[in-house]
Amino acid sequence: MLNDLASAVIVIVAVLFVLLTTVAYLTYLERKVLGFMQDRLGPMEVGPWGLLQPLADGIKLISKEDIIPSDADKAIFRIAPVISLVPAIISFAVIPFGRDSFHFLGITTHPYITDINIGILYVLALSSVGAYGILLGGWASNSKYSLLGALRSAAQVISYELNAGMSVIGVLILAGSLSLVKIEAAQSGGFWHWYIFPQIVAFVIYLISGIAETNRTPFDLPEAESELVAGFFTEYSGMRFSLYYLAEYANMIMVSSIATILFLGGWNSPFAFLDFVPPFVWFMLKVYFFLFFFFWIRATLPRLRYDQLMKFGWKVMLPLSFANVIVTAIVVYMVRH
């Protein structure tokens, strides 16, 4: 019992530490990648190659004045960033980062916080809770830009979450489980076992929905700078602003992790002779590939128009994901009988 508790605490601390450091350095990485793709250098001044930039940004944001607009709904204004951030972080509880259990201070522990049998459902549920933070923050700010940003965000998150959820079902049919650990284990043994090949349609749909769900370019209508200043967090400043920022980047890592686990085999190595590389490294490589892809897409594509976004979500993605579920179900039924 005590051993379980200690192992859980160790993993939670490790996951939180890695997660928050990654989130901080993701802002740096994003600026670097965007800069490089625009023939610029990105941040260079703070530390060697600007490596201490996230630290400087953090100190700046913490030491800034915390402004609450006089017309805002103060209680909701205060709690909204927390509602946005907490689900983004606690959904990492079910992400398996590696395969083997390891020893730390004489305690045996496993590379995930918990393995619940409805893992993917838990993740999807929490990602919808995060939308409430955006919605409440935009409403409580009592500003037209925030309100419009929140409205767009709500509509967008709901319509694309549907697609993401539907595209996951194909994988669930193949793996026969909602537990992320079991889904990963089902894809072991070479890259041809990964679900990206039988579920290529679902993979594309999930990736697009994931970008839309995390409100990133080309689907960053909720925070469209040119129209809505900063969208739902226009009125936020200082630490509360950075909580929203943390939530956005944590969600990006979440979407990348889920895409990795569901479609790229999680911690599995692509070839048997590459098994000497630790599973954790494979997992991280794949996650960082997706994160890089997010930045890459941002550097490439302009923002969609709102009606294009909705039309694409409901008229193209949703029918495709339904078709994918039906076809997968029929094929799996015919193969297994």
């Binding site: 490089f36 793709m37 023939d39 490439t300």
Partner: peptide, 11 residues
């Protein structure tokens, strides 16, 4: 954009 990622930076 990927090609420009490796280009010489103008800054």
């Amino acid at each position: 954009t990927f090609r420009h990622f490796f280009k010489k930076k103008l800054t």
